[in-house]
């Protein structure tokens, strides 16, 4: 117990600083009071949640998962099932079980329910997949993503197949997203200092030694997998409420790679890296987009052609990784006095 307390006191600075950073961003949005800017910030918060979710599994276990966006998909559809007004549901998704069809739950019930649902499914998949390691595990998680995507893209009566599911109540207030992001960061932090998190990181760095010291690697991985799926599912549900429509192809390769890239650019093994990677890349993207629209500098308007933003962000990512192969933050975490080793 004393040990735990000492870990806590040594590392508590990280979540506190990250929380302050997020609070500053939320206040900025409030200060601006502009609809589109508010939406941009909501978007960044959701990204932070997803990337923190990825960090919980990938960062601690060292296994690259391509499958986590599948849980985001599960979460988004779950909250859609629960929160869409029953008359619309009966029309569009008649195959849902009766009690779901009748349900009209509020947003704040839908999101946690979605997270729990994603975690539950992750438990079943994880039971099978967590036996694998290395690149085989990566491919297996990818196959899981593709499997989820294929089922959701074709199960007409329950998911509406490729058609958009509409009628999800939209929430444009920044606070629920802000609170959820703080919760996600707290979960990420709590897991990384938990017994399981420490054991898993030990296994990531020295598999043989960890196994010899009694770490049951598949079991610890399964824990991380389920917890991260919980966060990813919640993130997906929030995405659904921020945009108001979901389709299966939103939650496929595009989102998978963007989220993975943000994690790797920030620093795969670091919670701070996950958060800062998202904030930084999102900021760069926003700046580039401003330039696409044209920015007045004195008398001249600076404009870059449409489409340059995507190319530029690709190049910037490559350059960051060339300079810092372990990501911007590397394996460290932010502390009061700069960085410390995680």
């Amino acid at each position: 117990m004393a040990e735990r307390a000492s870990i806590l006191s040594r590392t508590i600075a990280t979540p506190v600083i990250l929380g302050l950073l997020l609070t500053a961003i939320a206040l900025l949005a409030l200060l601006m009071g502009s609809g589109p800017f508010n939406q941009t910030i909501i978007d960044i918060f959701i990204r932070v949640i997803l990337v923190v979710g990825l960090y919980i599994f990938i960062g601690n276990s060292g296994v690259i998962s391509f499958g986590h966006i599948g849980f985001t998909c599960l979460g988004a559809y779950m909250t859609a099932w629960l929160t869409i007004p029953p008359p619309m549901k009966k029309m569009a998704l008649p195959g849902l079980p009766g009690f779901v069809l009748e349900a009209k739950l509020p947003f704040w019930v839908g999101v946690p329910a979605a997270a729990i649902f994603a975690a539950l499914i992750a438990f079943f998949f994880g039971k099978i997949l967590m036996r694998l390691s290395g690149i085989a595990a990566s491919i297996a998680t990818f196959a899981m993503l593709a499997l989820i995507n294929q089922i959701y893209s074709n199960w007409e009566d329950v998911t509406g197949a490729t058609s958009s599911v509409v009628g999800i109540p939209i929430n444009r207030s920044i606070w629920p997203y802000f609170v959820a992001t703080l919760v996600a960061v707290a979960i990420g932090y709590a897991y990384s200092i938990s017994r399981s998190g420490l054991a898993l990181r030990a296994a990531r760095d020295e598999a043989t030694a960890a196994a010899a010291s009694g770490v049951d690697i598949p079991k610890e991985r399964l824990r991380a997998f389920v917890i991260s799926a919980f966060v990813m599912g919640g993130g997906g549900a929030l995405y659904a409420h921020s945009v108001g429509v979901v389709t299966p192809d939103t939650f496929y390769l595009g989102l998978t790679f963007i989220s993975l890239s943000m994690l790797v650019v920030g620093g795969m093994g670091s919670l701070s890296g996950a958060v800062i990677g998202v904030v930084l890349l999102s900021t760069i993207i926003q700046i580039l987009r401003l330039f696409e629209k044209g920015v007045a500098l004195g008398d001249t308007v600076l404009t870059i052609p449409n489409g340059v933003q995507e190319i530029a962000i690709g190049v910037i990512m490559i350059v960051i990784l060339m300079r810092r192969p372990a990501g911007l933050i590397g394996n460290r975490e932010v502390g009061w006095k700069g960085f410390r080793k995680a």
Binding site: I311, G314, I318, L321, G327
Partner: peptide
């Protein structure tokens, strides 16, 4: 990227593919 970890290389290759794709798109 010689001798960096496979994850970093993989993301770098993805970023490169992204650049090629959007270059063609332009």
């Amino acid at each position: 990227f010689r001798n960096t970890n496979p994850a970093t290389m993989m993301i770098a290759s993805f970023a490169l593919g992204f650049v090629i794709r959007y270059f063609l798109l332009m």
